[in-house]
Structure formats: structure tokens, C-alpha cells
């Protein structure tokens, strides 16, 4: 048996990411959806960090939290904000 604290953290982070994705898919306000998507990316980045892939973490943080958010924000500003049922 070896130390498992990092694996417990991995389990918790993945569980929270599932909740975030559920909220994100349910959300009708697209700006809130983008913020939830960024939060989900942060949890995934923590999971990738625990899985010891530092290159992917650095690239993923910049892309998923920075560039996707900015890209979709621009798109929402240009188009419509609310999704109808």
C-alpha cells in the first residue's frame, strides 16, 4: 500500500468537475455557461496536474481558461446571450 492522498484529491476533483459540467449543460444564460466552463477547465487542470503531465497543464490552462473563454465571450457579445428552451 502506498500514499494515496493525491488519488483521493483526483477523485474529488473529478467529482466536482462532473457537477460543474451538469450545471453548465443546464444553464440558459450563455455568459454564466462560459464561466462554468472555465471553472470546469480549472478542475480538469488540477486533475491533469495530479496525473503528472506538466506540459499539458501549462498549455491547457492557457488555452481552456484563457483563450476559449475570451473567444466565446466575443462570440456571445456579437450574437445572442440567452438560449431558448
Amino acid at each position: 500500500m502506498f500514499p494515496v492522498l493525491h488519488l483521493v484529491m483526483l477523485a474529488v476533483v473529478l467529482g466536482v468537475s462532473f457537477i460543474t459540467i451538469y450545471l453548465m449543460v443546464q444553464e440558459r444564460d450563455l455568459l454564466k455557461m462560459i464561466v462554468l466552463s472555465a471553472a470546469q477547465s480549472t478542475f480538469y487542470a488540477i486533475a491533469l496536474y495530479i496525473l503528472l503531465v506538466p506540459d499539458v497543464v501549462l498549455a491547457y490552462i492557457a488555452v481552456a481558461v484563457g483563450i476559449y473563454t475570451a473567444l466565446l465571450m466575443f462570440a456571445v457579445k456579437k450574437t445572442e446571450r440567452f438560449e431558448e428552451a
Binding site: S41, T79, E83, E84
Partner: peptide, 23 residues
């Protein structure tokens, strides 16, 4: 979901999940 931007966001989430699988 009907909105195209939400479809795009869900597509990125699907891709991110595959990154976790690869890791």
C-alpha cells in the same frame, strides 16, 4: 441543446475529457 455556442462549448468539454483519458 439548440444553441450553437453551447454546442461548441460542449464539444470542447468532450475533447478535454479525452485528454484526461490520455493522461
Amino acid at each position: 441543446r439548440p444553441n450553437v455556442l453551447k454546442k461548441i462549448a460542449c464539444l470542447t468539454v468532450l475533447a478535454d475529457t479525452s485528454f484526461i483519458v490520455l493522461a
